[in-house]
C-alpha cells in the first residue's frame, strides 16, 4: 500500500526525522510509537505531504529552514512530490494531532466539509456509517465544533476524515488527552473501521500500551530514528521495549 524509504526532515539544522523507512500493507494497522518530539507528527506530515506546504510557506518568507528528503511509493506510484490535496485525492487522509476541528461549523457541517472529495452517494452512506460508529455525534449534530469536549472532537475528527473516503488513514495521536474509557472506544472504532471499510491505518501514540493489541506492525521512534520495529506482539514481549514504552 505505502512504502516510504529513507525519510529525512531537518528543521533548520535540527534533524526531526532521521532515515526512517516505513511500510504499510493493504488492510494493515501500523503503529508508530515515541515520546514527545520523537518526530511522529513530522513523519505524518511527510506521508500526507503537509510538510511540502510547511516548506513552501517557509520559503515564501525567505527561509530555507525546512529540508525534506523522501521517497514514497503509494499504490505503485511515486508520490514524493505530490501536494497534500492531491495525495488526499489518492486516498491518503491525515487526521491531525489536536483534531483541528472547524470551530465555527456545526458537527454536521464539519462532516460535510470533510466530504469534499466524496460523491453525493458516498457522502450519504459514509455519514450514516459515521453516525453508527459514533451515536454521540448524531445527537450533537447541530452543536458548534468549538463547543465539543475533547473526546467528542476526536470522534468528529475521525468521522470527518472518513467522509473524505480514505484508503490510507493517518491518525496522529488519536488518544491524546482522552479518558481511559474513551480511549477504549476509539481503539475499538479504529479496529471496526479497518474491518468494515478495508482501510489501511497508520496510527501514532506516545504510549504503546492501549494501541499495541490492535496493530499488525509497529515502529518505535527515538529522536527521529526508528530504533526498533516488529510485529505488535513481538515488540510487546521485548523487555527493552516493555520498560521504555509500556511503563512496566
Amino acid at each position: 500500500m505505502i512504502e516510504a524509504r529513507d525519510l529525512m526532515v531537518f528543521y533548520e539544522n535540527m534533524i526531526a526525522v532521521n532515515n526512517v523507512t516505513l511500510h504499510c500493507d493493504d488492510g494493515q494497522i501500523v503503529g508508530v510509537f515515541g515520546a514527545n518530539s520523537a518526530g511522529k507528527s513530522t513523519l505524518m506530515y511527510v506521508l500526507s505531504g503537509i510538510i511540502l506546504d510547511i516548506q513552501r510557506k517557509e520559503r515564501m518568507r525567505g527561509g530555507e529552514r525546512v529540508t525534506v528528503f523522501s521517497k514514497i511509493t503509494y499504490a505503485g506510484k511515486d508520490i514524493s512530490l505530490m501536494k497534500p490535496h492531491e495525495r488526499a485525492r489518492e486516498g491518503i487522509i491525515l487526521c491531525p494531532e489536536r483534531r483541528r476541528i472547524f470551530p465555527e461549523s456545526s458537527v454536521l457541517e464539519n462532516l460535510k466539509i470533510g466530504a469534499y472529495l466524496a460523491s453525493k452517494e458516498q457522502a450519504k452512506e459514509t455519514l450514516d456509517y459515521v453516525f453508527s460508529l459514533f451515536p454521540t455525534l448524531d445527537r450533537l449534530k447541530d452543536r458548534q465544533g468549538g463547543f465539543l469536549s475533547g473526546g467528542e472532537q476526536q470522534m468528529l475528527a475521525i468521522g470527518r476524515s472518513l467522509m473524505a473516503q480514505p484508503k490510507l488513514l493517518l491518525l496522529d495521536e488519536p488518544l491524546l488527552g482522552l479518558a481511559p474509557s474513551i480511549q477504549k472506544d476509539v481503539i475499538r472504532v479504529i479496529k471496526e473501521i479497518r474491518r468494515d471499510r478495508r482501510i489501511s491505518i497508520i496510527v501514532t501514540e506516545q504510549y504503546a500500551r492501549p494501541v499495541i493489541p490492535i496493530v499488525d506492525y509497529a515502529y518505535i521512534l527515538e529522536n527521529g530514528s526508528a530504533v526498533m520495529e516488529g510485529k505488535g506482539k513481538e515488540l510487546m514481549n521485548n523487555p527493552d521495549v516493555k520498560a521504555a514504552y509500556f511503563g512496566v
Binding site: 500526507s48 503537509i50 506546504d53 501536494k83 497534500p84 490535496h85 488526499a88 485525492r89 487522509i93 491525515l94 487526521c95 491531525p96 483541528r100 476541528i101 472547524f102 470551530p103 465555527e104 461549523s105 457541517e109 460535510k112 466539509i113 470533510g114 466530504a115 469534499y116 472529495l117 470527518r160 476524515s161 467522509m163 473524505a164
Partner: peptide
Amino acid sequence: RMGLALRGIAQDERAAMMLGIDS
C-alpha cells in the same frame, strides 16, 4: 461543495488541505 470547502479553508487552511481541498 465549493462553498463548504471555502468555509473550511477560512477556518483552518491546513485542516482543509488534509481533506483534499486545494487552498
